[in-house]
Design a protein around this nucleic acid. Sequence first.
DNA 1: CGCACAGTTGACGCACATCAACCTGGGTGG
DNA 2: CCACCCAGGTTGATGTGCGTCAACTGTGCG
Lengths: 235, 235
Amino acid sequence: MRDSPISKTETRTWLSHVDAESIFSAVVREKTFQARSDVLRQKDVPDVAHLLLEGNTFRYKILGNGRRQITAVLVPGDVCDLEAVMRGQADYSVGAATTCVLGEIPAARITNFTKIDPLLAKNILSKLLRDEAICREWLVGMGCRSALQRLAHFLCEFRTRLEPLGMAQNGEFQLGFTQVDMAAILGLSIVHVNRTMQEIRRSGLIAFSAGTLTILDIPALEAVAGFDPAYLRMP
Amino acid sequence: MRDSPISKTETRTWLSHVDAESIFSAVVREKTFQARSDVLRQKDVPDVAHLLLEGNTFRYKILGNGRRQITAVLVPGDVCDLEAVMRGQADYSVGAATTCVLGEIPAARITNFTKIDPLLAKNILSKLLRDEAICREWLVGMGCRSALQRLAHFLCEFRTRLEPLGMAQNGEFQLGFTQVDMAAILGLSIVHVNRTMQEIRRSGLIAFSAGTLTILDIPALEAVAGFDPAYLRMP
DNA sequence: CGCACAGTTGACGCACATCAACCTGGGTGG
DNA sequence: CCACCCAGGTTGATGTGCGTCAACTGTGCG
């Protein structure tokens, strides 16, 4: 059974191609992480950055009261811990949602930022800026959007990010997150995520089975979400 | 009547001193903005960046449903629209909370990032990284903290940012935001902000009058908020 | 077979939103 | 100098979106 529209190896080739001027050449080693394991822990002093090659990871923080919030979701081509490496210390953790393959990049390649290849610098900078734009948009969603809109918005955003990688076609893609993860992404309880997903399904906007999510009517879902992709700066 | 522990002119001198290696020398012109006016509007293509010299500004977004979320609060020494200038287009607006003095910096000074003075580049980068860290922390707060904790956390954060500028002493500083602003910062209704502020006041943790906020017991407020300043990377 | 973990369902509670007044002080015009 | 206005702040009554608790189902795996 194929678990994505195009195979993972195809995606990797494609990735390094569209992003050729980039960070891919800085990878010195590949490493596989189990689903549900941590790539990086809060307060770690990282000596390598991790470029995501296969699977999905996320950044998260755990508070004193035990609650967890996911602050970013990473797709292949993203650097999981860019800010942590640039600052020299992590103020968040990075977890693997699915089994993942990560490429290690020596921290020095990134921290000697102003001395490196301008193309690489530009690439890193644009990743940084996009990360921040997404974080801002999530913050706006938490303040101003209902559970339903937030879920819809997240699915629209995720699809939009996967599409240029060839990992989403006709609104269909792998959603490697459990409802427990979704709750931590959306700032909701697990129970409410469950009910909200059912509501969207019943309304006929999405379908979901065996890890594959299908957006049945993309413009309609984007309208519900109030999704405007401008902040993502996709080509 | 003095409206801050040390005068504004003193603060300006101090600011350009502690940040001497920096962005201050790139200012080509100063401009005053009225309280409640906009410095920058969403979708604008900025040709100058604005360094905040006096007063408080904030970044915000307005959604289709009319709701507004403030995504960042700026203090003197911050660049209001750094990401917008670097990306070439704003995906947020910037408003003045109080009357403000801003220094204009030609966009080219910032976008020619990799070709400029490494010290300036480093400074810009660190501002960018801090902005993102704060945004992440706000996001975590929205997902995991109660209204009371969020308010307390914001006050702790604001004080911590003002202190090295000499604009907060003994837990006392100017809070130039109305409760309407606070609601948009915290993602709460105005009424609930009002009640929450009263609750903190009644508990004896803060006092507030004539725009001056005093944190009466800093460690206690930080404990309530679950505030850990690590993400701010203050000296 | 039994355990663990993701998903699901119902009953109930609460933190917050909403609506609607009303108060207050500073500014403005007659 | 008063009359008015208006923005910011305050208060009470009521509503609701989402959280919490608790139980049950299905499924893959040792």
